[in-house]
């Protein structure tokens, strides 16, 4: 994978670069702020862009805004927003324009290298990756429409929101793929998602999940 990294913290940027290069990927460019992002994307044609939320000049949420803007300019661009802390509203904003090729993860997740690279790969392929912390924030809502789901169904949906496929979900929950399939069917029914393109329903389920 060719990756463009937008991260102002040199230690973290170097760490990410090391992690990518030792895993056989290429860090095409490391930017200190989001200003040249679209230009760098045009020049390097990366498979994915990793963007920190807090960036110069104001150190607020310009990374998040830059990611949203970059995706408006280049809808196919895969973006992983990477942050020291996660906020549900940020996830909602990030996924409003569609969940294809979008990820939102805590920086903590680099500690589990395989899972992190898996998520990176998934997002680059057009999947989604949502941090379990965001999912947790969403699930603590008592009157959420999703409260109709059983706890197992919620677990399945949480893993779907993280962008995992049925096989991987089955492995994580230590159940058969058939059982996962049934759970997903019931989730679609309970969320009122009509039959149709199953991939599309999947995204809509995740969006219902994120949008509240």
């Amino acid at each position: 994978m060719r990756v463009v990294i937008v991260e102002d913290n040199v230690v973290l940027a170097e760490g990410l670069k090391l992690l990518l290069e030792t895993s056989g990927h290429e860090a095409a460019a490391v930017l200190g702020d989001a200003e040249g992002l679209v230009e760098a994307v045009d020049r390097h044609a990366p498979d994915i862009v990793i963007v920190d939320v807090r960036l110069p000049p104001t150190y607020r949420d310009e990374g998040l805004r830059a990611a949203i803007q970059a995706r408006r300019a280049r809808p196919d661009l895969a973006v992983l927003v990477f942050s020291q802390y996660v906020e549900e509203v940020y996830a909602t904003e990030l996924f409003t324009d569609g969940a294809r090729g979008v990820g939102y993860l805590l920086k903590d997740r680099v500690a589990r290298v395989d899972e992190f690279l898996g998520a990176l790969d998934r997002v680059a392929q057009g999947g989604t990756a949502v941090d379990p912390e965001v999912v947790h924030q969403l699930l603590t809502r008592r009157q959420h429409p999703l409260s109709r789901l059983t706890s197992r169904e919620q677990e399945v949906l949480a893993l779907m929101a993280e962008g995992l496929g049925n096989g991987e979900i089955a492995r994580r929950l230590v159940v058969t793929e058939g059982a996962v399939h049934k759970h997903i069917g019931r989730i679609f029914t309970k969320l009122g998602l009509a039959e149709g393109d199953s991939g599309h329903r999947r995204v809509r389920a995740v969006l219902a999940y994120l949008g509240g």
């Binding site: 949420d61 549900e88 924030q137 509240g212």
Partner: peptide, 26 residues
């Protein structure tokens, strides 16, 4: 860090942070 000064206050100011609180309230 969150108990010292919630980061979202830095990012979004009081209005934005409170809107996020409201969105998250059950």
């Amino acid at each position: 860090i969150r108990t010292m000064y919630p980061p979202i206050l830095t990012d979004r100011g009081l209005n934005g942070a409170v809107s996020a609180l409201g969105a998250r309230c059950t």
